[in-house]
Write a protein that binds this DNA or RNA. Structure first.
Lengths: 160, 160
DNA sequence: TATTATGTCTACCAATTTACTAGAGATTGT
DNA sequence: ACAATCTCTAGTAAATTGGTAGACATAATA
């Protein structure tokens, strides 16, 4: 077994892609107003494989979270105000509907005529809502401020 | 794209295995006190592939949720009072830790000396707790009662 | 206009996980 | 002895994850 590397052989784990995407958005938000930032810079700053990040940023652009400037001196910029970007929305974008219910097996010989009126469905919905409520209580701006606080306290440790 | 068949190409979805496992536990709880129930019966009642269910029940036995009686007239029985089995525990058992944080990439040339003191980690923890709080607010007994209510209301529709 | 630094697109690939299936064996009631 | 059951070890096809490779498009600037 590999120690928490990648997926750790368990279900329901946020994918690396989503994680990289969030970190890229944080980086873009951190540098808002500083002109286009290249894929390479973002990759270096956040420790993301550059060719993988390329595809992730393209998706973020298509979804309207980022804009790109092509050609020399080009790069990516954030497309929305960080205050209005909710963490829950970003995760939903990368991961799709959280906690979807698997279809009740169709090879069902028993009587049930209405398809999938499962006792678990409403519970799933409640759980997903609760999850998204927590995640959406944070904006990208919140994350940026946390990141700034972390960086400055880290710098403190060095000067001591 | 296949319409919600299996995984629907999206992340963070409860696996079929977990879903089957929950349905099997519901079936065992429904028939508590009626003697051993064979894998085949459970599979038929809940629409689960029998050889797959076999492995799932073995896991449930190892975890102490079910007991088995071998040989002829054998089968499975529930091993705990349904009132004391929490939905959150069962899901945790099948899926492992929900919402684990991927490791921040190790190929990090930048300064960060403390490993993975990520701004996202505390948020993940809060989200997971909120999720488990909802899931663990239901016991297996609750599910059984919902299932019974559903079945009887279904029967009603037929007699009308 | 040539160069060069950038983003864009399509395709491909290896490792892992999921969702099973197969077959042989062990156990127990009759 | 027989038959019905659980048990164990493999194996496996399809999907997903986590990338990589290479060719191309675009734009600044010299």
């Amino acid at each position: 077994m590999q120690f928490l590397s990648g997926k750790c052989s368990l279900g329901m784990i946020i994918s690396n892609k989503c994680y990289y995407g969030l970190k890229a958005m944080i980086e873009l938000a951190l540098r808002e107003g500083q002109g286009p930032i290249t894929i390479g810079e973002i990759a270096r700053a956040q420790g993301i494989p550059v060719r993988f990040l390329e595809a992730i940023l393209r998706q973020l652009k298509q979804a309207g979270y980022a804009d790109s400037i092509r050609g020399k001196e080009g790069g990516y910029v954030i497309a929305k105000e960080p205050t209005f970007v909710r963490l829950g929305d970003l995760i939903l974008f990368f991961e799709g509907p959280l906690m979807a219910v698997s279809p009740s097996a169709t090879a069902h010989e028993s009587a049930s005529p209405t398809p999938i009126p499962d006792v678990l469905s409403p519970i799933w919905k409640r759980a997903e809502k609760s999850l998204l409520d927590v995640l959406s209580s944070y904006s990208l701006q919140d994350l940026v401020e946390m990141e700034r606080a972390r960086n400055s306290s880290e710098a403190m440790n060095y000067t001591i």
